[in-house]
Write a protein that binds this DNA or RNA. Structure first.
Lengths: 253, 253
DNA sequence: GCTTGCACCTCACGTGGCGTGAGGCCCCAG
DNA sequence: CTGGGGCCTCACGCCACGTGAGGTGCAAGC
């Protein structure tokens, strides 16, 4: 059951040109060509296309999509989970924007005017330079810091947006686990902690379990981190730390 | 209280280059220049920038953003309302995508495989050519049809996506009014009907109240339309028709 | 057998929304 | 008077395609 470009373009809702493009850049090469040189897409190709379109919808540049999909140690379920996380994070962002619009409407009918900072806070400053100096002071001479600098150096605004969205989604999932009454050393909580660690490894620097545990301790020790997590949901800082510790113990022994 | 490019870029979360670009294309020209030729943004400019960023986030190309914002008969409240509609529509879409991901996860754990059409239906085929022939048959010799052809001829995929999203949002608002128990001839329902009419005028063709009433009647008469509306919420087709009729009567006399 | 039409093919240039220097001006602090 | 920070104006680069132009393979109708 193979399909032609036109058919695939039809039910995937993209143009033929797009499929040609994906073939050109090696993102989606049809697994076969007909006698006349026509592209023939197998069901596996369609699977891949669906994944591509999801990640594209979520704002990933095509080369990163290729990197994600060609990552050998990322099974299909991991992709689906990440996509779900990203979607929920984006929904959350849009809800905040909608709330901001409502706020603006109220302010307008009441005749109140807002400060510049208030106006734009919804767009998520996500200022990555916020604690720059202090971070360098504390961690400047470590490998992790250098790696982090290297990887994040080429991050664009959009990259930062996606990274923070994904992190938000992870925090939200952890908070939901907590609210649902799952123990911090339950399988699900530890799995989420492990994903948190892998995310840091992907986005910032190689984060082993030991390093991860340090991070967890910092979340409850440093009031700024604590507050950030408590703002997401009360009790989350400690819960996250416990889940991280439990996960490290699981992998350690 | 005027601000420099750097400051504005700072709290708006955009780059200086972006502001330069918006100045170049005439989308956001700072209302003043300093002695040294430096851009100075007033509070009104910030207002406009906020609107720009909202519409941009929602996927509008910049020239359309300019058209929307420079539209003389669109007050600020209309913008806020439209933005809110678009946001809710987008949230709805993302929720459906998230549901599709969950569905895919289930299917995978169950070991079921999906048909190509099933796989991609979430991306919203939104096939605008669906009833093309029949539409031409019934309306081909009217002015409205010709206008509609002209306006939609240059619509891209993205344009269609936004149009359907906005329409969905309107339907959803109407459905919520109905569910909340508002009468079809209440002020809010009529206002929403009026927005529906204006939307059609913007997106497709000049739709007067008479024409609008015809549309409303068709929604209850043609089973395909009826079903579409009933799928959104039971009773919506008739409710929408009534609201349209009431709104036309209000403007007629 | 011949043409008509359709879906496909391969270049190859165009476009939108900026990113990213290059080179220079203004102004204040040391 | 020299350095540095923030601003300025070109002007070229990039990504994800859109949009022809010009040609091929194949089934259907004349």
């Amino acid at each position: 059951m193979s399909h032609s470009v036109g058919q695939v373009a039809g039910f995937a809702g993209v143009t033929v040109r797009t499929l040609h493009h994906y073939d050109d850049i090696g993102l989606l090469a049809p697994s076969e060509r007909s006698h006349a040189g026509h592209r023939r897409y197998s069901d596996a190709d369609l699977d891949r296309l669906q994944q591509i379109l999801f990640y594209r919808e979520l704002g990933f540049p095509l080369d990163e999509v290729a990197a994600l999909l060609d990552d050998p140690d990322a099974d299909p379920r991991a992709h689906l989970r990440r996509q779900h996380d990203l979607l929920t994070a984006r929904i959350e962002r849009l809800r905040k924007m909608a709330a901001a619009v409502e706020h603006a409407m109220e302010a307008r009918t009441m005749g109140i005017s807002l400060t510049p900072e208030e106006r734009f806070e919804v767009f998520g400053d996500s200022d990555p330079v916020q604690y720059e100096d202090e971070v360098r002071e504390r961690w400047g001479d470590t490998d992790a810091y250098r790696q982090s600098r290297e990887r994040t150096a080429s991050y664009t605004k959009d990259d930062w947006k996606r990274v923070t969205e994904e992190l938000d989604a992870l925090h939200l999932r952890m908070a939901d686990l907590m609210s649902a009454g799952a123990a911090a050393d339950s399988g699900e909580a530890m799995d989420t902690a492990e994903e948190h660690r892998l995310f840091i490894t992907r986005a910032y620097y190689d984060c082993g379990h030991e390093m991860h545990t340090c991070l967890g301790e910092m979340y409850v020790a440093d009031p700024r981190f604590t507050r950030m997590y408590e703002d997401i949901r009360p009790g989350l800082a400690a819960y996250l730390r416990d889940a991280i510790v439990a996960n490290a113990a699981r992998h350690g022994g």
